[in-house]
Amino acid sequence: MVLEVRDINTSYGDVQILRDLSLKVEAGEVLCMLGRNGAGKTTALKAIMGLVRPRSGSISLDGVELTAMPAHKVPKQGIAYVPQGRRLFSELSVAENIEIGLMARGKGRDTRDRVLNLFPVLNERMKQRSGTLSGGEQQMLAMARALCLEPKVLLLDEPTEGLMPSMIAAIRDSVTELRAQGVAIILVEQRVDAVLPVADRVAFIENGRTRDTVDVETLHGDLSLVHKYVGVGH
């Protein structure tokens, strides 16, 4: 099982965002995209989901071409998305958000129970409007909603943004667990310390290009690449 993004170019109007960006992630692997604000990380995830159309290049999952697939068919292939800022259906209840996740690939009660076991705190909040949850609970719900697809590939866009350390640890644990289950994960982060403990490989993104892709071991003790692409102070 492999998700492969090859040389995609995208633009918003006249502004080109991604330039020949390539990525590859396999089952049971965590690929982390690191880069500054505006480097194109979020756009790359949206392109995979079909929410932004590449002008050229290709995106495929196990040889199935996703590049021109209508956006609502992409999740049916087994790709789940946790957007930046969570993007819950905030007027809907926790249960309804979960239900929308389940409906995406026609999953039932088994999946629901399994997902809620990962995030037991949601059980007590099922009837609550999701917009009224705390930040950490919202992030858990966003993860839970995505996991209701039983995805082969999980795209996480800054899942630890604005969370307190105990929540960050909980999110990190669930990422590790999913990797062990054989899910391919693409993780977008801006902070290297959130990445090092979970990532297998790191792709550095700058100005819409993949500059370097390295094994995470290379970065332990040598942060020169991080300083180069993300900046000092991280």
Partner: peptide, 22 residues
């Protein structure tokens, strides 16, 4: 179910697509 799909589309149509809602 259809009502739920309608409300999800109303609140965030982009995210709705990411959950297979046409």
């Amino acid at each position: 179910r259809f009502g739920l799909i309608m409300r999800a589309t109303q609140f965030d149509s982009e995210t709705a697509q990411a959950f297979a809602i046409p």
